[in-house]
Design a binder for these strands. Structure first.
Lengths: 230, 230
DNA sequence: TACTGTATAATTGTATACAATTATATGGCT
DNA sequence: AGCCATATAATTGTATACAATTATACAGTA
């Protein structure tokens, strides 16, 4: 079980529709379908061994996620994700993670605060050992704790969406650079600001944290991922 | 034709599914269905004179919009929108409109800039005449110009979503207070900052503009709308 | 009465059939 | 040849039929 399947709550993995939804989304995000490619209900259904009905429902959901563009009576076309989209998302995320850190400072529970501290200490340990897999898990969890502790369903939902949307890109670049250690230093600072109830500081730090993450991504071959398509 | 039906691009109004989607959404936002009420596919379909198929598709979309919660094999339940949601959205929007104004400053076209100027001058005129209907239209359009000129599909989409999401609430409170005039003063300042290529100023002004709009909403009976439900 | 298991009904999930729309191919015309 | 109209095929939109799951009612038992 990984932490990235944030949409499971809404589109269960076990119904046909849910499985189709997840499958097509992965295929789009992994580049199986190219930009502007037309997806045919019957073809997808046959490939997955289901009828058109669940495929259609999945299409409608993917449209609202922005991954498909459906033209009535015509077809469904892959929207994909561009380098500019990634940049925009990170700038938007930067602001929203800042707000999230602020609200977190005001609303975080004792238990969540403790998990956050634990997270930072544990990540410190894994960083020293070079455990990249665990580092990635802990990084995700750190942000998730923030999302869940800001006491805003709206903001939580938004940030989780973004987080997932750039998952594929992150996965590629996280492996490369050895940002794990410095990233966790930033987590520690954010955590301490929250603990000290310094909302302004927490906001600014979280803000900067995302921007640095983006800069690091760029430095570590974000353009490589897109070079074949753009 | 009003400017609020921003989802028309994605769920056309003329297919059955599109009509069902819009109808149910309106009914939820207008309070026809209460919080946590269960919506049955067959009942809705019968009421609208269509089969379950388009109803199901509409349900799946409404789930992703956050207006329905679908429990597999069980049912669809109305989520609704709370006062806290509105507050959160306005705080989030405040940040994002700021970013939008910044990007606008960097990317707006000559034509859009001109339309924006025109918008402000025209609104000035209608404000002096007390034409609230036209003022509302121009207010919407002002923000839409910004959204469309920030050169970011991501941000544009997000802001249009939020804008629509609080439509019902805005409609109720816009009529009350005579904020039209002061609101347009703020528009003018934002417009001039964009024209002067002062991104920092544009961002700060747009930021404050949304916060003031929210404060005005609260002062003009936001709580009245929710009093029967919360 | 309270509880439980089972049968029945209601509801959602999926597949299929048919209608409407759009794309493609064919043939005649200039 | 190039163009247009028409026929044909392919694809999406909707309705219906059936399967699977969940809720409800009821009888039997302690």
């Amino acid at each position: 079980m990984n932490n990235y399947d944030l949409k499971d709550e809404v589109s269960d993995k076990f119904s046909l529709r849910g499985r189709v939804f997840h499958k097509i989304r992965e295929d789009i995000l992994n580049g199986k379908y190219g930009e502007n490619e037309e997806l045919k209900e019957a073809a997808i259904g046959e490939e997955l061994g289901v009828s058109r009905t669940p495929v259609r429902e999945a299409f409608r959901q993917l449209e609202l996620e922005g991954l498909l563009k459906i033209i009535p009576n015509k077809g469904a076309y892959v929207t994909g994700i561009t380098m500019k989209d990634v940049e925009d998302i990170y700038m938007i995320r930067s602001l929203l993670e800042g707000l999230c850190a602020r609200w977190c400072t005001e609303h975080i529970s004792k238990e969540a605060m403790e998990e956050m501290e634990e997270n930072v200490y544990l990540a410190d340990f894994h960083a020293s050992k070079g455990h990249t897999e665990q580092m990635a898990e802990l990084d995700n969890r750190f942000h998730e704790i923030m999302y869940e502790s800001c006491d805003s369903k709206m903001l939580e939902h938004l940030l989780k969406d973004f987080h997932h949307y750039v998952y594929r890109v992150r996965r590629q670049t996280l492996a490369n650079g050895g940002r794990g250690k410095t990233s966790n230093e930033e987590h520690r600072e954010i955590m301490e600001a929250i603990k000290a109830k310094d909302a302004d500081k927490a906001e600014n730090l979280a803000n900067a944290h995302i921007k640095k993450a983006y800069e690091n991504m760029c430095a570590n071959g974000l353009s490589e991922i897109f070079k074949e398509k753009e």
